[in-house]
Structure formats: C-alpha cells, structure tokens
Nucleic acid binder design. Structure first.
Lengths: 205, 205
DNA sequence: CACTGAACCTGCTGG
DNA sequence: TCCAGCAGGTTCAGT
C-alpha cells in the first residue's frame, strides 16, 4: 500500500526530490512548511502542552482580542488524513502561545520524545487547511509526513458540547474524504457521521 | 472496646434500625442519612471543592436546567445549629457535581483531613432542612456528630461562635455518652473544655 | 486606594 | 464514565 512504501523511502536522497514534491503536493494542492520545532522535555512531558515560539505563533496563528480570551480550536490533518484538534491559546502568565487540549494525545500516539520535531504546514494557495507532522529524532528530515500513526479517537470528545467541536469534526471528515479521493485507491465515502473508511482503514469517531 | 463494635456495626441491617433511630432523632425530628463520603486529599486540599459522587448528587441534589447554569446555594446545619452555605454546581469539564464556595471554610473549621468522612442528612418527614456532619478518620461511625463538634475555631471565627462552643462541646459529650451507654463499657465524661476523653481516647484541642 | 495572598472558577488529563 | 488531581486565571478580602 502506498503509505508503507513511503515509510521505507529514503527521503534524503536528492533523486527522490520529485517524489517528495509529489507527496507534498497531493492533487493540485502544494503545501508549504510554516515552521517546525524540536520538542523540549516539557513539550512531551506531563505539562500536556506545546509551547509555540512566539514569532511563529504571531505570524501564522494570530489571536485577535476576540479569540484571545479562551483561545480557539485549531484542526490539523496528519499524513494519514487523520484530523487532530488542539486548543490554541495565549498564556499571559508565561507570555507564551500554547497548544493544550489534544496535544498529549498527539504526543502519545506519535510516540514523541524530546528531540523529536513537530512541523506545521499549510496549503500554498489555500489558507484554510492545516497540516501537522512529526519527525523522530535522527530520522531523515523529509520523512516527517511518512511516520505512521495509529487511528484512534475517543468517544468522549466526539460527543463533547462545544459547537466548534461538532463543526470541526464534520469538516475533518470532509477533508479526509477529499484526501481519500485523491489516492489511487477508491475509498468508500463516509455514509454516516461516525465512521470513515480511509486508505482501507475504518476510522470510528 | 465499644467503638470497635460500633465501627463494625451494620447500619443497613433492619435489626439496627431502632438504634439508628435513637441516634438520629433528636427531639421530635428524625433525620436520615442521605450519604457520606470519605474525603480525598483533593477534597480537603487547595482545590477548595468537594466532589459529590454523581449517583448521590443526582438522587439527592438534582440540578435542573435552570439552576444548572450557575449552580445554586445549599444550606446545611451542623450539629451545633450553625448554618453552612455552599455553592453547588455541575462541572461539565469533569462531569462532576461539586460543592465549591464555602467548602474550604468548613474543612478548615472542622479540621478535616483526607480519610475523614463527611455526611449529609435530611429530616425523615420534612424535606426542607439539610444537615451536614463529619467524622474523623478512625473515629467510631456513631460518633460522627460528636467528633464534628470539636470546638476549635480560628481567632477569626472565635468571636462569632463562642456561644456555640460551650453548647457544642456539651452536646458532643452527651451524644458520646449515649453511644457509650449502648455499649458494655462506660466512657468517662470530659471535665474541661480543652480535653475530652472519648472512647478511651484523650482528645486535645 | 494599591497591593497581595487566599479563595474561587474553569478546564483538562489520566487512571 | 466517573472523578481525583492538576493547572492557570480571576475575584475578593485584608492590610
């Protein structure tokens, strides 16, 4: 299957650049790297938060006064099409921008350790969709998106109260379907809002 | 020892109903135990809240949609007749019912620690009045009210509760004696207000 | 009235 | 799912 091939690929080799380009520009959409951050022990520890360097945060994820109060929910798609939702906010006490809710699940599922790198991408021509990836310490730089993830989600958050959450979940499914359609395999469209078959994997929300 | 017997006493057993009845029915008003909870470290710590187990909360302190938003104020009377008012509400984030405002004062004045037990009672025939009591860890179950009445208060409270103090200690002794009378052993009454010998244990304030 | 610490409120994680 | 525990921010009361 496609993703297994990608996992073993040597992304560092120049001769693979074209392939890499193809990978990053699935369909007609090119993605550009916004920034990456080597994870600190605190980023992967019990604080359950990722500190986003201020200059990156203010450039790519500006918080206006309105959203600054309680932060906002950001949705990112990983290389498998899985949508990760994080609460993004500013902590005045530490003068830091952070991802909080949802971050620890990402760390756990991707098995991130200090020294690993998390990276954020966006479409080159369409500012809506956001992507997240990671690269384990010592892994080739371009292999980030190929790191496998285990599809997992809790029903707890699927049923949670916020209007934003419901809307974003739906948006996430739509996004995943688009990705699936672009693949060489035919993915069955999600017939109901709780399950999506993607790359031959059933994802339950 | 009497208290060891009482500690093992089965309050649920029908054959003990008469004993329970005598204990709980002061004057003409019968009280029934709604529930009790052994206090966790968090319940008596800096979180300043008491988590009320959901099944008890929903049975005895139901919150309708109207009061659910900001919770409501619940008033309880302790064994001294002192009224304690707590804010009672539901935390959606932790899916828990809690007492918040006012709880820390109760913990402080009653000198509650983890492992102590707080108990909630109501009149058997009159649904209006509510009672709260506590029992210190290791104390006999029936001595709840007696232990709760330990006449200690901060200088801050001393001026307002001095009248109650004398009465409370007296009431506590009486009750303790009643319990002792039910046992095969006789407990010596405490002679001064700073020390109480109860069930063979010297309690210093 | 400003400052400070305690109390209170909200939200999240993890077992 | 419940709830213990933790964290950060806001409000309040005492000085």
């Amino acid at each position: 299957m496609a993703q297994h091939h990608l996992q073993a690929w040597d992304w560092e080799s120049p001769m693979n650049f074209h392939y890499q380009y193809q990978h990053l520009c699935r369909g007609e959409q090119c993605r550009e790297l916004m920034f990456e951050k080597p994870l600190t022990p605190s980023d992967v520890g019990k604080l359950n938060r990722l500190v986003i360097p201020k200059h990156h945060a203010e450039k790519y994820f500006p918080l206006d006064g309105d959203s600054g109060e309680k932060g906002l929910l950001l949705s990112f798609e990983d290389e498998l099409g899985k949508v990760w939702q994080f609460r993004y906010s500013y902590w005045t006490s530490s003068q830091s921008y952070v991802l909080t809710k949802g971050w620890s699940r990402f760390v756990k599922e991707k098995r991130l350790d200090a020294g690993d790198v998390v990276l954020f991408e966006r479409p080159r021509f369409d500012g809506e969709r956001l992507y997240i990836g990671c690269r384990h310490r010592g892994a080739p730089a371009a292999a980030a998106a190929a790191m496998a993830s285990v599809p997992w989600s809790t029903p707890y958050y699927a049923s949670s109260s916020s209007v934003h959450q419901g809307a974003s979940l739906h948006a996430g499914e739509q996004r995943a379907e688009v990705v699936a359609d672009k693949s060489t395999e035919t993915a069955a469209p999600a017939a109901n809002s709780r399950r999506l078959r993607l790359f031959g994997v059933n994802l339950d929300y």
